[in-house]
Computed example of a mutant assay.
Amino acid sequence: MRPIITLTTDFGQRDPYVASMKGVILALCPDAAIVDITHDVPKFDVRAGALIMAQAAPWFPKGTVHVGVVDPGVGTARRAIVAVSERYFFVGPDNGLLMPAAMKDGLKAVYAIENRKLMLERVSRTFHGRDIFAPVAARLASGLRPEEVGPVIDDYVVPSFAEPELRESEVRGEVMYIDGFGNVITNIPEGLLAELGISDGSDLEVEVGDRVLRLKLRSAYGEAKPGELTAIIDSWGMFEVAVNLGSAAEELGARPGDKVVVRPARGGRKP
């Protein structure tokens, strides 16, 4: 099977940045199958990029190299890293972007990219995606051992949004992403809700930012009336607030980073 390299960036499609990265990859690994996960991560939004990578990565074959470039700290002291998980390699900046995906797959080790021979001859201050991440990804796809990129590190950045908090009677997390339908996607997985006895049909009290809502956890958007707010476990297994045939983000004024608290409603129905 051809080696697979995925790309997730906030570059958009109008500029030559994505094509430049692909050119570097193909020059070093001509057989690579390059898959664009997305280049429409909201600009500089590490949180959104992390969620997209974490949800897309698990569907790829073992050995896939996942490259993420949402890098507002490019050119600063932030490190370039390779994170190795049970099945994949993740290449990108040490700003938390890669960690949710790597941790979800079982993080094994993280290496700082310091081997200058693996980079392009000239490394710019503003485009490490092309000059560092792309050539390292291509070489990993061609069989480079991750230990060759540089030393193992243990002080890599793990963002707060990677770890929602389970308390005695509630789960605390945050808004990770607003999708194209206006659905408010959180970092709270179905499994944490199950530990509180929450499942389809449960009545919930949900805080999103400063709003406190009484919602039912439904198994399909269509179970709610048109225009009605509802809660659902999405196709990624994450807790989501939605409006049937509408935008929950617009109705709630929700934004990535807003706090989210979910608890069983007092006196509410449990399935």
Rank of each mutant, 00 (worst) to 15 (best):
R79K: 11
V35E: 00
V41I: 15
A77T: 15
D40I: 06
G49I: 05
I52F: 02
G63E: 04
V69T: 11
D45R: 05
A32R: 06
D36Q: 09
A48Y: 11
A50I: 09
P72C: 09
D31S: 15
L51W: 05
Q55G: 14
S85T: 09
E86A: 15
A57M: 07
V67T: 09
P30F: 01
D31I: 04
L51K: 11
V67P: 05
P30G: 04
I34G: 09
H39W: 00
V74R: 13
A56K: 05
V41M: 03
G75K: 07
V69E: 02
T76D: 01
A54F: 11
R78N: 11
V35A: 01
V67L: 07
R78F: 08
A57I: 03
K62E: 15
V82H: 02
V70K: 07
D71F: 08
D45Q: 14
D71P: 10
V84Q: 03
A57F: 00
L51D: 01
K62R: 13
G68F: 00
A80K: 00
P61M: 04
D71N: 13
V35G: 02
K62V: 14
A56W: 03
T76W: 01
G75F: 10
R78M: 14
G68T: 08
D71S: 11
V74D: 00
G73N: 13
V65A: 08
G75I: 13
G75R: 00
T64N: 01
K43R: 15
S85E: 13
A57W: 02
R79A: 03
V69N: 03
K43A: 15
M53L: 15
A50H: 09
M53C: 00
D45E: 12
K43P: 08
V46N: 03
A83F: 12
I81E: 04
P61Q: 12
A80V: 12
F44A: 07
P61V: 07
H66F: 07
G75N: 04
P30T: 03
S85K: 09
Q55A: 15
V82L: 05
V67S: 03
R47H: 10
D40V: 08
A48P: 01
F44H: 12
A56D: 04
P72Y: 13
Q55Y: 08
V84D: 02
F44M: 13
M53E: 02
A54Q: 02
I37P: 00
V41T: 11
I81L: 13
E86L: 07
G68M: 06
F44D: 14
